[in-house]
């Protein structure tokens, strides 16, 4: 578990270098990646499926990213983009591809649905954290209640 966390921190920092993120922010990004991985790997132990776990992990890391971006006065994507990398459903995407290559379309479709759901869960977590931080600044929709 501890090894996994350390390796996850190293992976996140490596991805931060791939995305060309400034040197002075790297250690915070490592911590954010470790946070999202610990949430993502801890929740399934308590009986939560991988898709909701990915949503909660993306939400918590995006929330911390927003605080960090406020504090350091940098765009928040600097933190969120590497922060969600540990959650990417690489294994499932690979299973999907393999099933389609082997002609097992039913298996491919079900694995593909799982992959898409997990990607959507990550997006949903990000969007939820973003909405909390943009209360009062969002765009108007449906009804003009302030007339």
């Amino acid at each position: 578990m501890v090894w996994e966390l350390i390796i996850c921190g190293i992976a996140t920092v490596a991805f931060a270098i791939i995305f060309n993120i400034p040197y002075r922010l790297l250690w915070m990004i490592g911590l954010i990646g470790m946070l999202s991985w610990s949430v993502y790997s801890f929740l399934p132990i308590t009986g939560v499926g991988p898709v909701p776990a990915a949503a909660v992990a993306a939400f918590s890391s995006a929330l911390i990213s927003h605080f960090a971006a406020r504090k350091k006065r940098v765009p928040v994507t600097t933190f969120t983009i590497p922060g969600i990398i540990p959650l990417v459903p690489g294994g499932r995407a690979y299973e999907t591809m393999l099933a389609f290559v082997q002609g097992d379309y039913i298996e491919g479709l079900s694995q593909g649905a799982g992959t898409l759901l997990q990607a959507g869960a990550i997006a949903g977590g990000l969007a939820f954290a973003l909405s909390i931080f943009s209360i009062g600044r969002g765009v108007g929709q449906r009804y003009e209640t302030n007339r």
């Binding site: 791939i18 994507t77 969600i84 690489g90 973003l130 909405s131 943009s134 765009v139």
Partner: peptide
Amino acid sequence: SLIPLVPGVPLTNSVRDLMAG
């Protein structure tokens, strides 16, 4: 071997753009 190719920047930016309207 494939994970360094993941399009992280367009993925995250797409979500944020959609949420911002």
